[in-house]
Design a protein around this nucleic acid. Structure first.
Length: 225
DNA sequence: CCAGACGTTGTT
DNA sequence: GTCTGG
DNA sequence: CCAGACGTTGTT
DNA sequence: GTCTGG
């Protein structure tokens, strides 16, 4: 799965990556983005591409309360077109989730059943090159009428490398497939939900500093092994 | 018909 | 142990 | 994903 | 919103 990621680049670099010249937020590099926090998302609204901050953890428009978002941080590629929580978003609200890396916690063998030891592992594409997760978004109306925009990251079977760490991995879209994901028909978009080519993916262990969502510094991505 | 669920992960 | 918050 | 809370009463 | 369970 994917429960933390990074977007460690400057505001101008982020806009350049997706061809935007102006957005309504100021971005600072992030080294530990956790569920329930906001992050920039590229979506299509009214036929135009927009980039705006959304909260991680999808809250479907029909939800009675927003707490469901805690649990909808990922959507399985295998079932995303059927599940009530995701299918409407899959049809009309696919999005790109900009990132420069993501974390997975690897269970270490030999640890007592009662005390599971886990090591945080950090994945990047070509040494930190920006990329996009395949995502879905939706909006939810609060009691006060304000709209909450949220997103989820789609997961799939891991590649051979990713499988050494975990049994799921987020769907990473090559730059050449981003337009099809955003603006293609459902069938074409669904065809993009596969594991990322082995050769471009790297992974190394990082310290437990990343464990706490309160820590958001470059120390989170320093290699320790 | 209305009421209630709608999800993923990992662990058992 | 389980749920909520980040 | 992990960290941190998890409760009531009464008082400030 | 839409489907399932009662």
């Amino acid at each position: 799965m994917c429960g933390r990621f990074t977007l460690a680049l400057e505001h101008e670099r982020l806009l350049l990556q997706y061809g935007f010249t102006d957005v309504d937020f100021t971005f600072r590099p992030r080294y530990n983005i956790a569920p329930m926090q906001e992050s920039p998302v590229v979506a299509v609204d009214d036929g135009k591409r927009i980039m705006q901050l959304m909260r991680w953890g999808l809250v479907p428009s029909w939800s009675k309360d927003e707490t469901i978002g805690n649990r909808l941080i990922n959507a399985r590629a295998e079932t995303v077109r059927e599940k009530p929580s995701f299918r409407a978003s899959f049809k009309r609200r696919r999005c790109l989730v900009p990132a420069t890396g993501y974390f997975e916690w690897k269970e270490l063998p030999g640890s007592l059943p009662t005390k599971k030891l886990k090591a945080p592992m950090y994945f990047t594409i070509r040494e930190g090159e920006p990329f996009s997760f395949a995502g879905l978004w939706d909006t939810w109306e609060r009691f006060d009428g304000k709209r909450l925009a949220t997103f989820t990251i789609i997961t799939t079977e891991p590649s051979v490398l990713a499988a050494q760490v975990h049994n799921r991995m987020p769907v990473i879209l090559p730059k050449s497939e981003e337009s099809l994901w955003l603006e293609g028909d459902d069938e074409s978009a669904a065809g993009l939900l596969r594991s990322y080519p082995e050769t471009d993916l790297s992974v190394y262990e990082v310290s437990k500093v990343v464990n706490s969502p309160r820590n958001d510094s470059p120390e989170c991505i320093v290699r320790v092994a």
